[in-house]
Amino acid sequence: LDPCYDDTGAARRCIPEFINAAFGKEVMVSSVCGRPPSRSCSVVERGDDRPSVRTCQICDAADPRRAHPASYLTDLNSAHNLTCWQSENLNTSPYNVTLTLSLGKKFEITYVSLQFCSPRPESLAIYKSMDYGKTWMPYQFYSSQCRRMYNRPNKATITKQNEQEALCTDGHTDLYPLSGGLIAFSTLDGRPSGKDFDNSPVLQDWVTVTDIRVVFNRPQLPRELGLGAGGSNSDDPASVTSTLATYFYAVGDFQVGGRCKCNGHASRCLKDKEGKLVCDCKHNTEGPECDRCKPFHYDRPWQRANAREANECLPCNCNLHARRCRFNMELYKLSGRKSGGVCMNCRHNTAGRHCHYCKEGFYRDMARPITHRRACKACDCHPVGAAGKTCNQTTGQCPCKDGVTGITCNRCAKGYQQSRSPVAPCIKIP
């Protein structure tokens, strides 16, 4: 049972399963604690109106029990055994730390989420790339000071005119919880065309990513911590570092939820011979994202599948006389958007956009179907008796000189006899 075809064998839209595309993938981080071993302290809530306490840990990259490597970002997220990546201590400004995740293929993503082991950053930015990290564009910003940090308004309104615009919000930037806080960015939430995604190339483009980059720009600052004796009005976290807590970013789970992008023409993605993830394309499509028609399937332009139409690529009709064809938009429009394929290099002495008639110098053998390789026979016009080499493509009749007859013009007509002149091979009998 192939999800790309129904019971009758007709093509229908198919999509790969929804996954956490980040799971098990390597994340490049600009900072990781433990080289050399370092001590980091954090404030832990205890609940029940009991005061928060300060706890300190050693991070040692060489000791697996005390290491917090980047691989912990995308490993199995278990509440019983929470593993966290942790940055170096942030002693001086700037406090930028970057996480870069390469998906290795285009995905259509629905959300990006981060579960923190430290307090959530005060400012962070999410960027996306659609070209494997060559260029980056903003995807979403979080900050309690959107204008100051990112020069964007807080919670701007999204309309149909700016659906591909990154927003900034001050949500999710609260200090509390001190650990376990979540930042979740939903790519379609609040975007007007999200309800009509099939018909919105803009949003289809918006959710397409090959790489995700998260930049933590600033941790919660001391004055926002409000921790009494250890707090300070300074903008510099270092002022409380020595007395209460060190500042670092720590994340237990980094998820990117979405589907391998196959444009509705594959139900799964597989690894190719080189280990690259590619769509298992159906509907006569090919390419990493099933983003083009297979050779010889150019009778109509490639299109993404949707709920109503599979839009499969259709083969050109060349009557078995050509192996290649091309698409012609003008012919396609003239046909009422039905057929635009033009056969190339028609063989077996055929011609025409569908190799559906005989080329000059040949005529159709009506005893055979047009698909037969000998459907076209040579005219075989007589070199002297015929006035040319091209015969009637239907009957095979060559154009005869005066007084000459026969399909190939090889005999003198009744009342004529052969002369010695090749120019007038038959002359009237006196």
């Binding site: 007589h382 070199p383 002297v384 008796g385 000459v404 007859t405 026969g406 090889n410 005999r411 003198c412 007509a413 009744k414 004529y416 052969q418 010695r420 002149s421 090749p422 120019v423 091979p425 038959c426």
Partner: peptide
């Protein structure tokens, strides 16, 4: 009545060498 096919050997090619088929 079926007329005989044209006999290439009967033609005089003297003034029409360029028209003469190769195998004549």
């Amino acid at each position: 009545e079926v007329m005989p096919t044209l006999d290439m050997a009967l033609f005089d090619w003297t003034d029409y060498e360029d028209m003469k088929p190769v195998d004549t």
